[in-house]
Design a protein around this nucleic acid. Structure first.
Lengths: 339, 339
DNA sequence: GTGAAAGCGCTAACAC
DNA sequence: GTGTTAGCGCTTTCAC
């Protein structure tokens, strides 16, 4: 079945070493070169990457561990990472751990078995325990989207979540809103905590105290969760004039809930969503949203990893890149008249 | 850095063979078993999959080649495939070829180098040339979403595109529409051709001739393309009362165009979209759409491949699974009164 | 139960 | 330029 180097050596009458050398960019006598090329073409030979990696101890592949493959936010980043790495001769092996810590842990071991040169991880497990095996083998780890406080030796790329939330809420405050709801994700998650923190910071710096009346809805980053939280906010009758929803899925859910309740944006309620510009454009009016620079996150992640590879084993200080998010104005926020 | 079988053999005073046997499910004397386990735990040993595969000539991995990673339609299928294969001890290596035939071709060779046990492909190259190297090595190939007419020896899973389009257009006809526009994708693409065919079939079987007046818009399966086609249809002033948009991205574009033109669905125009239920729910009214059974496509794909693996080398006839799509009623189609 | 040894396909000294 | 050779880490007879 499988055709090996040996086959094409026999085929051409050359030695293993010579053929191998040619394949790895060496130079042969013209006649030999032609013979090798012909043999490769005719037999459909491809290098056995396993054998190669076994020898060279580098696989030219990086592992990517994500909570969910079926998620535009994530795939947009990964797509960019893949594009850049591929351009440098690296391939990626994706492990979807389905937001399950145990699977995430297994993924690390699995990838180490595949001899990946590095691991990119949007972590589910929030204490970073699962990454220990990689770190102890000096396999570079890069976290995206979520940092793990206290985890030494891992690079990270993420946005300034608190600043993004602060900006969104401040924007609402400047438009005259005073009773502002927020739908946040699970507080174990790094991004959730920081987005809530930004919300509070904005209120405080505008001289408003902690908001009561159920204005803070703790949810779970899912469509269904956003939907339910939005319904609760609507029913609470707390004088809320605006709501800030802090991830894509929940924004989706919140908009659906608003539609079903017959609430018109922004006449009856102002709303700022999060992520994904496609969605924000199909609603009428288009949604005002906080958008993350997904491509840039991917680009930075790939860049940092490639630089580490280039440096070889030499450790170097962990890098942490914080990117700004952007508030993109749509038409879902009303300006309240000053009283 | 890396800890190997040899290390743990030395550590425990046992031989390579014994340790290897244990790792692969063999039975040891209790004391030895404990020693091995301890050593593995303490050193953080993991099997080197490269060495193992080199020996066993199976990698327990399958390659997945897709046009675009950043696409919900695709990731939803792949996510399901991954889940099932993972459950059977297989991992997937994803290659995003960015809708580029050359990259797709390279991906096949790359995956063969990785010794994948099978390849799942949503093909970009429409003549299947790129798959030859895999087929000639007897590596099972399974096509999803798009068939390649004339390609022997590849399994395939897809929906009945013509029937789906026929059903959608027939639905519009039954609601009294007579001037129905369609936005289709590139005619080189299998699904595009069949969806257009279904449209024509529905018109014919209702006694309507080929529609003129620019009612058939050839586009490119992108948001921008859908947007532009929709604008053209609107400006054509051809008495069109309904439009059928034949993929997710173009549906997005078409809805945006309608919104921007101040056209209300379904009062001013009826619309049937394609794929993705999330989107269809955020618009007001919710969109009537054709939805594909994405999970089922993934499930079938994984199942067929696993069965092939189980059968071993023995070829067996290529399998072709055709799944039905579903017309999900929203509120974007108006009933025209009979005249 | 356990061990010795051959070899999977490739690369990288090192000689010629 | 080309060939010889020694392993990379593992599995797998085949002895003991």
């Amino acid at each position: 079945l499988s055709v090996t180097l040996k086959d094409i050596a026999r085929e051409t009458g050359l030695s293993l070493a010579t053929v191998s050398k040619y394949i790895n960019g060496g130079v042969l006598k013209e006649a030999n070169r032609a013979a090798v090329e012909r043999a490769i073409r005719e037999t459909g030979y491809t290098v056995n990457e396993y054998a190669r990696s076994l020898k060279s101890n580098r696989s030219r592949s990086v592992g990517v561990i994500i909570p969910e493959l079926n998620n535009v936010f994530i795939t947009q980043i990964i797509s960019q990472v893949e594009k850049i790495l591929q351009g440098h001769g690296y391939s990626i092996i994706i492990c979807d751990c389905h937001t399950d810590e145990k699977r995430e842990c297994e993924a690390v071991r699995f990838l180490l078995g595949k001899m990946v040169d590095g691991i990119i991880n949007m972590p589910v497990c929030q204490d970073g325990r699962h990454l220990k095996p990689a770190l102890s083998r000096k396999v570079p780890v890069l976290l995206i989207d979520r940092e793990i406080p206290g985890l030494r030796d891992a690079d990270s790329v993420h946005i300034d979540n608190a600043a993004a939330a602060d900006a969104a809420v401040s924007y609402l405050l400047e438009k005259g809103h005073r009773s502002i709801g927020i739908i946040v994700g699970p507080q174990e998650i790094y991004t959730s905590r920081h987005r809530l923190e930004g919300y509070r910071r904005a209120l405080t710096s505008h001289g408003l105290g902690e908001s009561g009346g159920g204005l803070v809805q703790y949810s779970d980053y899912t469509v269904q969760g956003g939907y339910e939280s939005m319904r609760r906010l609507i029913q609470a009758q707390n004088g809320m004039t605006a709501v800030f929803v802090t991830n894509y899925e929940m924004t989706l859910g919140a908009v659906i809930a608003a539609n079903e309740s017959g609430i018109r944006l922004p006449d009856d309620l102002s709303l700022i969503g999060f992520d994904n510009t496609d969605l924000s454009r199909v609603t009428r009016p288009p949604l005002t949203i906080v958008t993350q620079p997904l491509e840039e996150i991917g680009t930075q992640a790939a860049r940092i990893l490639l630089e580490r590879f280039a440096r070889g084993g030499k450790a170097g200080v962990p890098v942490s890149v914080t990117l700004p998010a952007e508030l993109r104005e749509g038409g879902s926020v009303a300006e309240l008249k000053r009283r």
